[in-house]
Simulated assay, not measured.
Amino acid sequence: MTNGTNKFYVILMDSIYSFCEGESHRLCNKPCQDYAYADSSEGLSMAIVSDGHGGERYFRSDIGSKFIVNIAKEAIRSFVETVTKERQSVFHGEPFTQYTKESATDSQINSISHKMLTWLFSSIISQWNVAVAKHARENDLTEWELSNVDQKYKDEFLDMRNNPEATFEKTYGCTLMAYVQTQTFWFAFHIGDGKLVRMSIVNNKIEFDQPVSWDNRCFLNKTTSICDSNALEEFRYCYQGADSFPIAVFLGSDGLDDSYGDGNQLYNFYANLYKQIAKSGRKEAQNVLKRALPKISKIASKDDMSVACVYDDLNINENFY
């Protein structure tokens, strides 16, 4: 397949992902509030992670995170099909571009790329709101919720169920981040905390960075969220045409950040995961990841853990070594 400079790119992607209940949740029999997904097939690769909020008010965020991931993956497929026409797209030939509301230029705001991505984010939010409202009205409080949720939040939930105009975003609140790659472009988006890490080869050396700008409103136990009233404005994103693709992208919830920090230790964790893939293959690497996450949670952050990764499988051994 060619891009505008008549260069040929052969991209063979694969993916792994895993998520687990955190040690603190295991000790109190609280459900895992993280959810993750990754897939690579038919020229479309994606990785998605959502972290449900831990506070009592958000007592169904485990369900909210699962809903948002499943809604996002279908919305992404539809979006890619819509924006791609005759092997071209709104991102065709575009340089690497980052967007946040705070730093946006007029040209970015008026671009077709921004308008199309805003349509995608709006679709995900609206579908999620419909899904959580339906779930709330059709599912009574569970035995665990009756025993473990503060009475004021149970009363608030029951009062809302009696109000046909009520919405249930806070009860199901969660974050969302995703990475998407086709043969001709890639893009990533994020609302909330956690880290999206890009692995690239620069001057024959592996380098890591975070292509989606960080949101300074995410600090300590505070985060932006799908459940915010201005969630659409809080999305950050980046994209690029076919001139440069990462060799791997890793998405991890904040349970991993709180264990490794924001820098070399976190990057070393992902480098070792990439090495495991190169050494033993996708299936065994996913098993290793599945076993490792609960152990990391136990000795470090105690939080739920989730990781999703897509990577270039064509030259993985050459790239790593």
Rank of each mutant, 00 (worst) to 15 (best):
N3L: 02
G4D: 07
T5E: 09
F8C: 00
I16M: 09
C28H: 12
Y37H: 09
D39H: 13
S41H: 09
D51Q: 07
G55A: 13
R60L: 11
S61P: 11
S61Y: 14
V69F: 07
V80H: 08
T82E: 15
T84F: 09
V90R: 06
G93H: 00
T97V: 12
D106I: 00
I109L: 12
S123L: 13
V130D: 14
A133M: 10
A136T: 09
L141P: 03
L141M: 13
L141T: 11
L146S: 12
S147I: 05
N148R: 13
E165I: 01
E165L: 06
T167A: 12
F168V: 03
G173H: 08
L176R: 04
M177R: 03
F189R: 01
H190Q: 08
D193T: 02
F208G: 02
P211D: 06
C218I: 01
N221F: 10
L232F: 08
Y237Q: 04
G241D: 09
D243I: 01
S244N: 08
F250K: 03
G252Q: 06
S253N: 12
D258Y: 14
N264G: 01
N268D: 13
N268C: 07
A271L: 15
K275E: 12
V288Y: 05
L289A: 06
K295N: 07
K295C: 04
K302G: 04
D303W: 13
V310K: 10
V310L: 15
Y311G: 03
N315R: 02
